[in-house]
Design a binder for these strands. Structure first.
Lengths: 359, 359
DNA sequence: TAGGGTACCTAAACCGGTTTAATCGGACGC
DNA sequence: GCGTCCGATTAAACCGGTTTAGGTACCCTA
């Protein structure tokens, strides 16, 4: 029913107030150019008609949108399935809002990031989780908008922000090694999209860290069949551990590249009768807030996710404000947080039997 | 340095291809109106110049933005602090993307939702968590855009979507009562903004459910000094329980209006030497995915958060597509999920002493 | 009383597209 | 041989604002 009243335009206000369009515009943007009474009268008429300048029109003539775009390689619902992304967004949002910028999410439209980008009304782009071999990387490169690349190798002439993935991963692996673990399963993350090869991605850097520490400890991981891939989600971690278990893998430790998959692994481990951390040690990555409350509390690699979001937003805002500014690069520190999901490796030979007894 | 190349405009392509602006536009939107070779040539020139139609200009003449707006009464970083919001967003995103719509978040700009709304370039608005006494409710009411109100009483002529908050809360309270709890602390949520009175808000409905069950069981809650308010966050729940404890409150059960504050309560309870659920039973609300993995697993009221997002998006899309359609109202079911954070109330008199012994 | 400011307001151009109405040349029918 | 219709293309209007360049009227000064 609700007789949708057509939105009042500037011309309506002008006619009603008996002035020109320009006068109406001035009344709002440069009142000093009008006689006070005139400006006042115009504002009253505008209020009466419920007039609001059309934001799209304003954007068009202003040539800017006051909006930051966050590009993800996955559909948005999948991106938000990892709390990591929400946390990162928090950081971005805090800085963006402070600067009066809105937030828009840009995810592949009908499978195409390129198309999505073409439709995005933003002043700058924040790219997260897109490997440098992403099939549409060229589309992203071509953009004339300011860009900050997060968690990926810096592109030519673009600002980049990352964390010390390799160092954090190495620390995690060393921790397991020092606890006596030699049979270690690495749970990598699913590449964001099919065909996107991994060269300098987050996954690759963490893997290097894990491997470096494991190999130098003489772990079986040097043969590298112990790496499995799963989506960064509870279910992903659960499924991948179960599969590995069925394939006959009997690790005493798991290095997961995300907290959510680590939690999934723990659930799966329990379902096959393993006790964490007695039979199986699990290390996550990210240190999301809830990992301090899980059962057991998760040992994980901390990375400053919110700060990463804040800093990325700041870099981008600067790139927008000062188009000529040189690209900046920044790497934030990571560090292992030891909680309750890791313990000394069980004595060789026993875990399997013990498990059987439990099952 | 990166000599930012000015974006190619339609006029540039037209000049370069030796045709009119209209021809260029047709080449992309109605190629049938052009001779095939002409269209092809124009497209080649466009590709060479890296031309992309300016999305803002397109929006302006098209009169639509293909974007859904999500309005929150709080700054975005605070909204995302509750995983509930990310989960809801997942649902919205799934449906929106499928329909080719982008997502924009609208939060108070410089404290004003009204101003933020005026700047939002969206085709429809999804409002979540805004009570009907919100100071800027009128600004929202006046919007000529299609609106779906989530988790709030329906406004005149607006579609609304909610869950059975009262029923779920009642079930939670009855559960505690049936376990013998009579000293129950209710942890409400902080109202989204100062001065926004609560009449038919989520908080009010849940409170009614809690109280109804408690009062009929003869709990002390009828005097109602046992309701405390906290932000929906880990820290919020933690702080509020500690304060209540210091004020001399000695509940045997806690009914929290969000999972995150419930988890915070559990942490606080432990810090004063209580064991959950032996000394204190805690019930959350929302049933966020991670609550199945907490220590102990959380007993909580399930609400279909993602489905709520999906359904809200669907309702809104329909309102956009069919402006004349009648407003719809929908209420989704809730239900208690009993896990490990609730247990029979400790025998009267003992808990306090036992606690002391622990501390 | 003409020239120069100043205060106030308007006409018109512009932002970058889309769309409707008009133009032009050639093929066709009678 | 002339009117008509059609296909291909363009000019111009439009979306709804902002902004620049004027244009009046009035006052002050020489």
């Amino acid at each position: 029913m609700a007789e949708r009243i057509a939105r009042a335009r500037i011309a309506d206000v002008a006619r009603e107030a008996g002035v020109s369009k320009s006068a109406v515009s001035f009344a709002f943007n440069q009142p000093s150019r009008l006689r006070p009474e005139t400006a006042q009268r115009i504002r009253e008429v505008a209020a009466r008609l419920g007039y609001r300048p059309h934001p799209v029109a304003r954007m068009l003539s202003a040539g800017q949108t006051a909006t930051l775009g966050i590009v993800t390689p996955q559909p948005l619902d999948r991106a938000f399935a990892n709390p990591f992304f929400a946390l990162f967004t928090q950081g971005v949002a805090r800085v963006a809002e402070e600067a009066g910028f809105a937030l828009q999410f840009i995810s592949p439209l009908e499978g195409s990031l390129d198309r999505a980008l073409g439709r995005a009304t933003v002043d700058g782009i924040l790219i997260i989780g897109v490997g440098d071999r992403h099939p549409e990387i060229d589309a992203l490169r071509r953009t004339s908008l300011p860009v900050v690349v997060v968690d990926a190798p810096p592109w030519l002439d673009r600002s980049a922000l990352a964390v010390d993935d390799e160092g954090g991963a190495r620390e995690a692996a060393r921790h397991l090694v020092s606890l006596g673990h030699r049979q270690v399963l690495i749970v990598s993350m699913e590449p964001p999209s099919l065909g996107s090869e991994v060269r300098e991605s987050v996954m690759a850097r963490r893997l290097r860290g894990y491997r470096g520490a494991l190999v130098s400890a003489g772990s079986d991981a040097e043969a590298s069949p112990w790496v499995v891939v799963a989506p960064a989600s509870f279910e992903g971690g659960e499924a991948v551990f179960l599969t590995a278990w069925q394939d006959g893998r009997r690790p005493t430790g798991v290095l997961a590249m995300s907290d959510v998959s680590a939690i999934g692994v723990i659930r799966a481990a329990r379902s096959v009768g393993l006790s964490v951390p007695r039979d199986l040690s699990v290390v996550g990555f990210d240190d999301l807030p809830f990992t301090a409350f899980t059962d057991p509390p998760l040992t994980t690699v901390h990375q400053p996710v919110e700060v990463k979001g804040e800093e990325a937003a700041r870099m981008l805002l600067q790139g927008i404000a000062d188009a000529g500014s040189a690209p900046r690069r920044q790497v934030l520190a990571t560090g292992l947080v030891i909680r309750g999901s890791t313990a000394p490796a069980p004595a060789v030979g026993t875990p399997r039997l013990e498990v059987m007894a439990h099952a």
